[in-house]
Simulated assay, not measured.
Amino acid sequence: MKPIRLLSLLLGCVSLFPIPAHADWQAVENVQVYTVGGKTGAELYASIGGRGPKIGNAGRAVAVTNFKLTWTRKYEPKGNSCVLAVARPKLIITYVLPKPAERLPGPVAKKWETFISGVHKHELVHGDLIKDMVKKIEAVSVGFTVANDPKCQKIRTELTARLGELSRSQRQQSRDFDRAELSNGGNIHQLVLALINGQ
């Protein structure tokens, strides 16, 4: 059988909707599945290659982590300045994972369980990076003040520029993590090999 090309597990991000938070909050985390067919690890992995979520022009992935981030915010004029007094995030993270369409034979089921557990843990790291980014946005946002902005117009542009760097940093962290995990000998590479070998 021809070797199956390793698929990248890249972070699929919904674009950042700037501007941040206030008190305690928790992300809503969901899992969505797509079905794959096959009775062997190799067949299942080949099915992932045909049915996995699309990642731009990079083809298909085994799994992706998507998020939607919106904010409730309140700007307050203070003298000749403007202050971001309230910024509360609403973060929804969705992990998209493969699931066999039918029950697998015993030995294959065990291999699949190891594989999907490892893939899920990988995606949870992406989720943690997103949550960390939102906390950093919150930290730089609440109390953010812009002088000479009594109508609270300039503050939005200036804050968006600051938040862009945090978003870029999170995306780079995700890319670096994927690169390490997907490289030869990396964790995901090993999970794929364990799934498809010996069948």
Rank of each mutant, 00 (worst) to 15 (best):
V14L: 10
E43V: 05
L44M: 06
G143H: 04
R162M: 13
M1Y: 13
S183P: 09
N66D: 12
R60H: 08
S141M: 02
V146S: 02
G164M: 09
K111D: 02
Q199N: 15
N148M: 08
V28Y: 04
C13Q: 12
Y34L: 03
N197G: 02
G79P: 05
K39D: 09
C13F: 09
L7V: 02
A101K: 15
K121L: 11
F17Y: 09
E158Q: 15
N148K: 13
G185K: 09
N197S: 15
I130A: 08
K121T: 09
P100I: 11
Q170I: 09
N30M: 11
A21D: 06
I48H: 03
K154V: 04
T70G: 08
K74L: 15
A63N: 05
V86F: 09
D132G: 03
E165S: 14
Q32I: 05
S169Y: 11
S174W: 04
S141Q: 01
G41H: 04
L11G: 04
A42T: 07
L69M: 11
I116N: 00
T145F: 03
A23E: 15
S117N: 12
E29G: 00
K111E: 00
E76D: 08
Q153A: 11
K78V: 14
Q199W: 14
A42D: 10
G49K: 06
G37W: 08
I137R: 08
I55W: 09
L11Q: 05
A161G: 04
L91Y: 07
V134M: 06
F144W: 05
R60N: 08
A23F: 11
H126A: 05
A139N: 07
L44H: 03
Y34K: 02
D149W: 02
K74G: 08
Y45L: 08
I116D: 00
N187F: 03
A46L: 12
S47M: 07
F115D: 01
K136Q: 15
Q172D: 14
P107K: 11
D178K: 06
E138N: 10
G185V: 08
E29V: 14
G164L: 14
I196M: 07
G106K: 15
C82A: 09
G38T: 05
F144L: 05
Q199Y: 14
E113Q: 15
S183Q: 15
R171E: 15
S141F: 00
A85E: 13
K136H: 10
G37Y: 10
P89N: 12
P107R: 11
K121G: 04
A27T: 02
F144R: 03
K54S: 13
H122E: 07
L163N: 04
H189Q: 08
F67D: 06
V146T: 05
A21T: 07
V142E: 12
I116V: 14
G38H: 03
L84K: 02
C82L: 11
V142Y: 01
V192H: 01
K131P: 00
F67V: 03
S169P: 00
K136W: 06
P3G: 03
P53Y: 02
L6A: 08
T40R: 07
V134P: 00
V146R: 03
A194E: 00
A87G: 15
R179H: 15
Q190D: 10
Y34I: 07
A139Y: 06
H22Y: 13
K111L: 04
E158V: 14
P105A: 07
P105C: 07
V108G: 02
V134S: 00
R175N: 11
R60A: 07
P107T: 11
C82G: 07
H126D: 03
